[in-house]
Design a protein around this nucleic acid. Structure first.
Lengths: 240, 240
DNA sequence: CGGTTATGTTTGTATGATAATCTGATCCAC
DNA sequence: GTGGATCAGATTATCATACAAACATAACCG
């Protein structure tokens, strides 16, 4: 999967390497919170790279809120600690896939619960419309990817919570897209699989329509866990 | 709160501005997925800045996985979409505080549930030890901050899931630290408040010890929601 | 026709210079 | 002396330029 036909993927260049080292140094306490970092010129000497590289590395740490720099003053380790939670899904290696799925399920199912409590009639109509469109697509022997996306997005939208919606976009781009690719590649049992998926979808929709948060959580949880299971089977087949 | 005694916080410099614009352009579809971006030299002309600035901006997008660059080839919009979920908590504005808390509660309570299912005896001992240490600190009229941190961290550790642990660190740095500051600043009712918090902690610990995932989820949920409520009261008082 | 070699383009890195901004010391007036 | 303005130094921010490395394509040759 990783490292195939595409041009080789380097660790990210010198700036990324330096950034990693600096991050480690901060984490290890070699630079304490609030402490002033060496100047860019000095850091350049320390690591044997030019100031441009140091600047890019620092820039990355700044975007994570780990470092704060003031013109004329210097650069400091943010005493508040990193201000962002960064979830980078390196799917496909299968290493910590289970752990990641667990985390994803927690969020997704919670979102479904909130959606059940908050969905307006308009939300419900959108969810229902997406579900029926998906059914039509499956009947027409299409893949129904865009309809699947619309369905899940409609649910997240019904939470009326920006954070869940953003998280859903991430989930969509990285994980569900991956799952879908796996699914279409194992087109053998596509028929029964599609029916299974559709059934899970309908369970979610019914719970949300009924305003039953607990049921929505469970149904959503089951759906994603099943998808993960199907993905695992696919990955196992790949290794033969 | 924001913009007080510290040196004024600029929007982040030219690179951050350019990065925002590029991000917007990609989101708006002005640059389609997989499409090649203009060269750094051209982008520099377009925005009227030097190539260094463009490089730093692109570097930020690359760290989000939104852009991929190949030496000698050019820079491309990642067709897979962003590979990271970025949760930056701009707490203190109170704007979408409720939404954020909702998201945090979802994750934290799920973690408590997993902890209840998986905790080893050693985990349980760590949690219990932290809880008793916290009680001692409160009795001794100390703030007990470090003990509080240790308690929550021990729980997250008991999930044996790296993602929850990382998330806990973020939560700790940004949110709980903020809550704690609010709490100590309203030291008037500290006595009854501490007792209330301790009671909530004990409920979580008991559920985890009993291996009751559902109870652990609920207890954790209640604890964080109450903390958020206490925070809201504090913030409201501030506005007088 | 197939493989090899130029060639041009683009990103990566280095280097040096200038502008902007902040701290701390210095200086001057009163 | 004290308070405020001014200056010097340090440091980041930005710019400009040059060279190295990697890649695609076209030209070339056997």
């Amino acid at each position: 999967m990783s490292g195939g036909e595409q041009p080789i993927q380097r660790p990210g260049g010198l700036p990324a390497i330096i950034a990693r080292r600096l991050r480690a140094s901060i984490a290890d306490g070699r630079f304490e919170p609030g402490e002033q970092l060496p100047t860019q010129a000095v850091l350049g000497e320390m690591y044997g790279v030019s100031r441009s590289v140091i600047r890019e590395a620092i820039s990355l740490l700044k975007s994570d809120g780990l470092v704060i720099s003031h013109q004329g003053l210097g650069q400091f380790v943010n005493p508040e600690g990193s201000s962002v939670f960064r979830l980078d899904a390196d799917l496909g290696d299968g290493e910590n896939l289970s752990e990641l799925i667990e985390f994803l399920v927690s969020v997704e199912s919670a979102a479904a619960g909130y959606a059940a409590q908050r969905r307006t009639d308009r939300d419900l109509a959108a969810i229902n419309g997406a579900l029926r469109a998906l059914a039509r697509a499956v009947d027409a022997r299409e893949d129904g990817v865009s309809e699947d996306v619309a369905f899940h997005r409609a649910i997240l939208k019904a939470t009326h919570n920006e954070y869940f919606i953003d998280f859903g976009d991430f989930l969509e781009n990285r994980v569900r897209g991956f799952i879908r690719k796996a699914r279409t590649n194992t087109a053998r049992q596509a028929e029964s699989l599609m029916a299974e998926v559709q059934q899970e979808h309908e369970a979610i929709e019914a719970a949300i329509a009924a305003g039953n948060a607990e049921a929505a959580r469970l149904a959503s949880q089951r759906h994603l866990l099943n998808a993960a299971q199907r993905l695992r089977i696919y990955l196992a087949d790949q290794l033969t």
